[in-house]
Write a protein that binds this DNA or RNA. Structure first.
Lengths: 171, 171
DNA sequence: AGGAATGGTTCGGTGAACGAACTGTATGCG
DNA sequence: CGCATACAGTTCGTTCACCGAACCATTCCT
């Protein structure tokens, strides 16, 4: 594979990680996977990514063991985060925190809260109320002060307007 | 700007962050900036990025306030991380941690340690020895068990083989 | 059986990345 | 001073990945 996603000459772990998840759309696909999106056309509709690109990214992430492709209801396969994929949650949480601080003047659009006590999750992944570390499965996504209603009219965006526990399927 | 870096229809803070730092090479440029690289040709030599791309990325990051362009010795400008840029450190640290766990079978090539006490910095940014939060300026990069010597023969790679405090200039 | 939804693949056009060459300025050296 | 080298980019032709629209096969619903 010539040089589409690779960073030749970089022996750093960061470069290796970016070769896996650094391509355009990949981290947004994984974000949606954390939010509970599992099916091809749900990714497609919610992200607006060209279907050929989505197909290639999903296949690559499955090959790398970041996603698992498992049979779902009615014979339809679903794409689920593996343990390796879930381990990327701190990356996405840190990225969201940075974006919120620097590009959300009206406050965060979405806030992560601790399912146990309802406290806000800090950028470092701890509960601001009880201090405990909040694993991704105990994280609840709720609309924040900067939330402005679904930009798109699709069912995925509508479902994300409601409080929702990460990793659980939407709808 | 049509659609090179943008993710249309995505109102999420993560998508906004990726529009700034999600393009190819950008996070590696910032990684080098954390490691102490400051000058155009040092970035160019160490990364192997096409010079036109490097020029465009640096200009964009300065325009976004992630880097500051300041006059350096002998009339040469230098690119330094702003506070906004330094706030991206948790993202890169999380990415490096993920890459180390999943793509460094011989152990991490580089380890982050706490300048105060020498303890290892956890993926969450705390010192494993004293428990304190380790700010980026108090982080020291040392070669880890998986280190294999500089892949490239340039002076930057050689300088990174020695323990080195982040943000301080190399050499 | 007919129509819609799903999960893709195929294809032509466009824009970004690539690598090599080139420009202009500044510094170092004999 | 004259020359070589380093630096900080810019320019340019080629290649490649992304884009959007159209197409196809299978399954589900009525």
């Amino acid at each position: 594979m010539a040089l589409p996603r690779e960073y030749p000459g970089q022996s750093c772990a960061m470069a290796r990680a970016l070769e896996i998840v650094g391509e355009r759309w990949t981290l947004l696909i994984l974000r949606d996977a954390f939010f509970g999106v599992r099916r091809f056309s749900d990714f497609s509709r919610h992200l607006g990514v060209p279907r050929a690109v989505l197909s290639e990214r999903l296949e690559f992430l499955v090959a790398e063991g970041v996603l698992d492709r498992v049979p779902g209801p009615r014979g339809r396969d679903e794409y689920l985060l593996s343990d390796k994929g879930m381990a990327l949650w701190p990356v996405l949480r840190a990225l969201a925190a940075w974006g919120d601080v620097h590009y959300s003047p009206a406050g965060p659009r979405r806030v992560f809260t601790h399912a146990g006590c309802g406290g806000t999750v800090t950028p470092g992944g701890h509960c601001a109320d009880c201090g405990a570390h909040v694993p991704v499965g105990a994280t609840v996504l709720v609309p924040g002060p900067g939330y402005e209603g679904p930009a798109e009219g699709d069912a995925i965006s509508a479902a994300l307007a409601e409080p929702h526990r990460l990793l659980e399927p939407l709808g």
